[in-house]
Design a protein around this nucleic acid. Structure first.
Lengths: 235, 235
DNA sequence: CAGAACTGTCATAAAATTGTCACTAAAAAT
DNA sequence: ATTTTTAGTGACAATTTTATGACAGTTCTG
């Protein structure tokens, strides 16, 4: 188990269960917050690897918190497992829609919990250090969340940034729209595939400066998807 | 939906559900088998993209079948979603441990089923890694979906790419137009055989560079069809 | 709460790809 | 040497696939 921290929102029973089972955790914490905003803030603060999110939180809504987590760049990649009541199918679907990685119905067995956590963590790519990436005169700095061509900063939205980041870390390879949705938007998100086209366009536009047109770095692969390649100019 | 085939093991209700929902499937099949071995054989035979595996099969055990699937090289990468009874927690855990990609509890909503399938299939598309093929100074890279002569990328349409890929993986052998249609265009597609000629020409043209004329690699076998052979220059 | 920034979808325009033809060139058969 | 087949070509019109601009609903930011 690679969890360095597991953070449980509003469900002491769950964590006790985990401890009982002997889940090897480098650390864990049980969090209580009166509203989604506070909870979100605390989570950002603690930087856990995994969040067990109780759907039936007394005060705030699990859905609301999950939305916030998925919206924020800082917590977007967080693994979130919902804890839902046994028959609460609507919420489950809703949760998956909003971007929960998985759910567990209460009451759950420790074995199931562990299996889920294992599966989820195996599935997710390990987060590594965020170093700035530089390709063909294009520099992307994850920490400052900015992109430069030579020295001039470029303007772009969060989605375009993430898209570019993915491309810069996965060059010279064609990706289908579906794969891009999966990688950039995240799993369990229903978005039209054509939406990718639009964001590609926005990104290409953003990569244009008076000096260089780095939008050419993003090549369209007909019938397949897109590819980021330095073969296409922007020297 | 990219499923070319979805195969349902022993659960007619599930497939009816999917049809009702309008899940766009290129094909599907409901399979019944008296034991795990037979079922495994049938699955190998059908080569589906996804298996919905009912845990409560009347005769054979879902677990046993899953084990077989994971053991066999041919079916190892198959996506498997278990269908389990609502309270059958032990089996769920067991299934995930043995290697199911996900599970759905019955009765499930069509939305949930679709969400799961979509997510699972998107996630998996990058599972197989194809290696680039290199022949006589000609390099075809499936991952980037490109072809190079030496280092210069070549331009060609999707069909020409597929055609070339087929030839490069099936060298030194003559194929009739009909065979090529089957292999490259896909079976049950009604297209004039002479269409192949046209695409052969387009491919030959695409393979021409100022330096080399790799179009010569594609030889015509009079009265029969075409053959890809390194005997024909482009050294 | 108002204004600015983003997002996901559409409708439409613009491009690229495709399957066929008609016609020419090349080979094989008479 | 001619006729008969079979393959190579260039041109097209139909279809598909992408690129774009506009929009309306939301989410941030003050």
């Amino acid at each position: 188990m690679t969890a360095s921290t597991i953070l449980i929102v509003d469900d002491e029973a769950a964590i006790r269960e985990m401890i009982r089972v002997g889940l090897e955790l480098a650390g864990y914490e049980c969090l209580e917050a009166s509203n989604a905003q506070d909870a979100h803030g605390l989570i950002v603060d603690r930087r856990p690897d995994l969040v067990l999110l109780d759907w039936m939180m007394p005060v705030t809504s699990g859905l609301e918190l999950l939305r916030r987590l998925r919206r924020d760049e800082l917590t977007r990649d967080l693994l979130v497992i919902m804890l839902t009541a046994k028959d609460d199918e609507d919420n489950r679907v809703q949760g998956l829609d909003v971007g929960a990685d998985d759910y567990i119905t209460k009451p759950f067995s420790s074995r199931e919990l562990m299996a889920r956590i294992k599966a989820i963590m195996r599935r997710s790519t390990s987060r590594e250090e965020e170093e700035s990436i530089e390709v063909a005169g294009l520099k992307l700095d994850p920490s400052s969340h900015r992109v430069f061509v030579d020295a001039t900063p470029l303007e772009m939205g969060p989605t375009e940034f993430k898209l570019l980041k993915f491309f810069m870390t996965h060059q010279e390879r064609a990706y289908s729209r579906g794969q891009l949705l999966d990688q950039v938007w995240g799993t369990n998100v229903y978005v039209e595939e054509r939406t990718v086209d639009v964001h590609i366009r926005r990104l290409r536009k953003a990569l244009q400066t008076e000096l260089r047109d780095c939008g050419l770095l993003i090549q369209t692969v007909r019938g397949t998807g897109y590819r980021f390649s330095t073969t296409g100019v922007c020297a």
